[in-house]
Each structure stands twice: as C-alpha cells, then as structure tokens.
Design a protein around this nucleic acid. Sequence first.
DNA 1: CTGAAAGCGCTAACAA
DNA 2: TTGTTAGCGCTTTCAG
Lengths: 337, 337
Amino acid sequence: MVTLAEVAQHAGVSASTVSYVLSGKRSISTTTRQRVEESIRKLGYHPNAGARALASSRSNIIALMIPLRTDMYVPVMMEIAIAVAAGARTHGYDILLLTGEEGPDAVRRVTGSGLADAMILMDVELDDERLPLLRDTHQPSVLIGLPADTEGLTCVDLDFRATGALCVEHLAQLGHRDIAVIGEAAAVYERHTGFAERTLDGLRTRARELGLRLLHRPCEGGYDAMSATLARVFDERPDTTGFVVQNESAVEPLLALLRQQGRAVPEDVSVVAVCPEQVATQASVRLTSVAVPAQEMGRRAVEQLVAKLDGRGSDEVVLLAPELTVRASSGPAPVRP
Amino acid sequence: MVTLAEVAQHAGVSASTVSYVLSGKRSISTTTRQRVEESIRKLGYHPNAGARALASSRSNIIALMIPLRTDMYVPVMMEIAIAVAAGARTHGYDILLLTGEEGPDAVRRVTGSGLADAMILMDVELDDERLPLLRDTHQPSVLIGLPADTEGLTCVDLDFRATGALCVEHLAQLGHRDIAVIGEAAAVYERHTGFAERTLDGLRTRARELGLRLLHRPCEGGYDAMSATLARVFDERPDTTGFVVQNESAVEPLLALLRQQGRAVPEDVSVVAVCPEQVATQASVRLTSVAVPAQEMGRRAVEQLVAKLDGRGSDEVVLLAPELTVRASSGPAPVRP
DNA sequence: CTGAAAGCGCTAACAA
DNA sequence: TTGTTAGCGCTTTCAG
C-alpha cells in the first residue's frame, strides 16, 4: 500500500506538502504541485479513508436511511436513492445505506461512531421515532418527506397539498363535479404517512372551495382490491366522472376495470394520477398526472445537507411545486342527460 | 466525544483491556468485563470507526455496486440491495452504495482507499468491464449474476437454465404440446444478457427432451408489441396452448389480449411467468410462476463474501434452485376435437 | 511558499 | 488474566 509519506519522499517534499496539494488548503508553487501530482500518479497513491477520517474527524460519508416498508412504491425510493448517491459523489461524499431493520439505533450507531458525517432520512412518518434523536444530536440531517413538526429540521418534499389541489382544479375545470380518490393502502394512512394525508388534505380543501363532491377510498394494489373498491365507489356515488389515483399498483387495475365496465377514458370518465412519469406514460392509457420528482428530491436533499456541512445552511422546508402534465386520460365531463 | 481511554480510566483498567472486551479476542475475567461494560454504558461510548479502520486495516464496510440500466427491472434490484444491507448488518458490516455513474473507477477508488473491505456487484454483464479489475485486485468480491467467464470469481444467481426447464415440465405435465415463449425485448438477447439466454437454453433443451414444440419470440413491453407478437404466434402455431413469459411489462398485455380474443386462462390457454412474486400475484389472473428469489440472492451473496473475508471461502458459483408456484393461470391442456 | 512534529483513537504485538 | 507501548496514515498547528 502506498502512503502519503512515500509520495512525499518520491517527490522530494514533506508529507504536509503532499497533504496540502491534495486538499488545496494552502497555496503551492506550480512546480512542486506538478512534481507531487506526478509522484501520486506514478505510485498509484490513494489516500487512506480511515486515517483521513481519524485525523480530520470527517468521514466524507453521508448515511442514507431507507426504512423498508413493503407497501411503499419501491421504484421511486430507488430513484431517489440513486439521485442521492450521484449527487453526493459530485460533492465528494459516499453513501452508506441503512435499512429500516435497526430503527432508531442506526442513528445512534452512525452518529456515535463518526461513521458518517451526516444523514438523509427517507420515508419519514408524521411522528417519526427517529426525530427526537436527530434533534438531540448535532448530526446534520435532511429529511425527504415531511413530519408533523418540522421545528429545527430541514426537509425536502413534493408539495403534496398543492398536488392534491392541482388535481382537483384540473378536473373541476373540465366540468367534473363528482370526484373519487383512489388512495394508498389503508395501512399507509393508519401509519399517518405525511404525503398521503397531505395530498388528501389538498384534495379535500380545494374540492370544498370549488364546491365539488369528493369521495376518498384507500385501496390495496391489484385487481381484486381495486374491483371491490370501484364497485363501492359507483355504488355510493353513481355520478362519479373524475378519478384521482395515488397508488401506483392500482393504476393499471383501475384502467382495466373501467374499460371492462364499458366506461371509456376519457370520454365517460377522467383519470388523474399522482405517480412517477414512467407509470403515467406506460399505462394502457397515457395518464394525465402529477409526477413525483424523485431525481430533483434526491439532488436537493444532498444540496441542503452539503450546505449544512459547509456551515452555510439553514433549517428550511423545501417544498417542490407540483406540475400537472395533461395526457390522454382526462377530458371534459360527459354531458348528463 | 467519549474515547476508549476515558472508558479505561473510568473502569480502572488499561486501554487494551477495554479493546479486548469489545473485540472478544482474548479472555477477560467476568468482573473486569462487567466493570468495563458498565463504564461503556454510563459514558455512552461508541468506538470511533475511523480510528478502528486505521489501526486494524478493516473498515467493516462492504461496497455494493448497482449500475443503473434503464431496461432492468428496478424493484428486484432494490429488493436484493435491501437484503444485502440487512444480511451485512447481521455480520457486523455496513453497506456503501455505489451507483454505475463512476464505472470501473469506483472499484479502484474503494479498494485503493480501504473504504470498503470487499464488494458485491449487481447486474453483471456477460463480459463486464469491471471483472479484470476485480481479478487483479486482492479485494474479495461476489457477483450477483453470471458473467461468461466465472474463472476465479464467486457468483450468486438464480439457475435460469433450470428455471426454463421447470416451466416446460409443468406445462408438459398438464398435457400441453405446443408452447410459445414470450421473451425479453430483442435488445436484451442481442446484448447476450446471461439470464435471458440461459433461460431460453433451459426451455429449448427440456422441450426437445420431452418432445414438445417450442416457439420463442422476443417482445418489447406494452400492448402494441404484444398484440403483434401474439398474432404471429397463433399464425405460425395455431395449436399453441401453453405460454411462458419472461418480461414483466409483457405480462399484463398478454393476459388482456388473450381475454380479448376470447381465449380463457387457464381453460383454453395456460400461462407460466418468470417474474417477481408481486407481479405474479397482482396480475389480473394470479399467475403460475417461478419467482426471482431476490432476498435469498442478497443473503447468499453476503454469506459468500463474509466467508471470504473470514478466510474460509472459495470461488464458487452458487446457483439457486428455482421454485415454481402453481396459481390460477395454468391448467390441463384443452382436449382437442 | 514549505517543513517539522504533535496527535487523532484504536489495535495488537510484546511483556508480565 | 492484564498492562505497556508502538504504530496505523493522515491533518494541521506552529515555525520558518
């Protein structure tokens, strides 16, 4: 293994000079810099991560905590995680992957050992058990998702309340008066997951303001669950012409069942989805949708965190504005006889 | 920050004693052990990861490399990654997440810096550019997936050849004589992706042995592509009664189109899928399928790697036996008039 | 602009 | 069964 000392010797300079060439923390004459860089290349030197961490009390590692809930839509999580990893690298950080298994202990372990300099938490619940720990520790952190109380925390999320409002507005403009919301599995609401409740709040508030009737039904994924849910919806509200879906695994079943019942989309019924772009464009009907900007969320989370690590940085809630893309699944409400 | 020295002082023992209590590398009298453990708890001591890594040249971190190919099915990747992370923790390791961005350089960086003790590579291509590097380095590693040349490498994968054979056997037992295989997109075969070719090989070999007729057609995802493919299949082999699908995004279109053509599943036509459990159970017909055992693959990969790190361990190709689950999409071949 | 040297906190011989 | 001690490789004052 090549050490910094060996590089120094090879280049005929002191160890500290090599160190400073690497960190750029003080000015170096062009000639020595070149000699050092050449030695580094020639010897194939790689600074030792452990030694660096020990001497500088900085690991250059960001912990990313992904609680594994089976009822969450995985691809979005993955997309965010990948964006976080890529973003972190551009700032010189690596990502340590923590799954939910350990729960809050993982926070203690990582902060206590100096394994990571900071952490990003995904899939935050409204009253998340990891939050008290975060507030206590001095560990810089960013949440992806919004808890109930954001005091003293930095959060990045899609503005789901605005998302809900946007969906309702779109349908209202098209003349729909009775709207059904096909939501996430009931467990998601029972857990008081932030995004689900906030979307619902946005939907309800705007519907009330616009004088629309809104029916919300949680729904598991798959055909059977969707079939039952759909039956109930039309049973309770036969005049329903607008649907808002926020559940990736219910999208295709919904479309298939509507088709099967002879309800044409968008002629008889309009559908607006809150889902990843890919799901919206690859569905059997191209869906009017509000996309979850996974990449953007990952990128922004890293930026916030790096800002904190660099001393500029503030506790701030970053809500990304939703964008609704009109595709083939929404159209004017049918004229009622 | 609490250090080992402080714990030692508090407990009235030497630093090495505390170290040995922690590592268990030499026997300690029960009384001192208890005193030390108490001090650790009281002071809230956490060993410093950097110092440990430096002194022991062991980071207790495993790098997990996930190249992000857009045509791979993401949920399975994620499931494996999570299983890897969980498995690693049970052996005292953390996971460093590397995405494809950096390419082979990431391998160099991680091995060179001692950031990780070993690595797991996912989504391996038949002729992967990272393999030469791995063979050179002394870094222990395990591949998830099978490259063309496994010489000197440890690999974990589903036995796709056996998977193909299993699907054919199931349909043969039910009396089907004409089988159509709906495969991945043509590009996947052109790239000579290992799993696709191996599955096909298994299908063909067993079909020949059992005297069945087998027709293989690659197929893009989506309804249009599936519609064209299906038309060709029944055109060339009107007596086809058994289908094997290995393409998540073709599953639902296939079922929908068969239904549309008035071919009942499983009364007229049987379908066997090679896909994740979730896709099989949430499809419009619950699918008889061979699942990709993501959890098991992650777990096994970690086990192989830890074995190597502990000095017991061998270069070995671990092929997991496929399991076929019978559900509602397969049944006896219709009696021909 | 460069060097010398004191640690960072822990592990693992070597001694007892 | 326990203690002493010499590093591990790097960063960062303090001097020049």
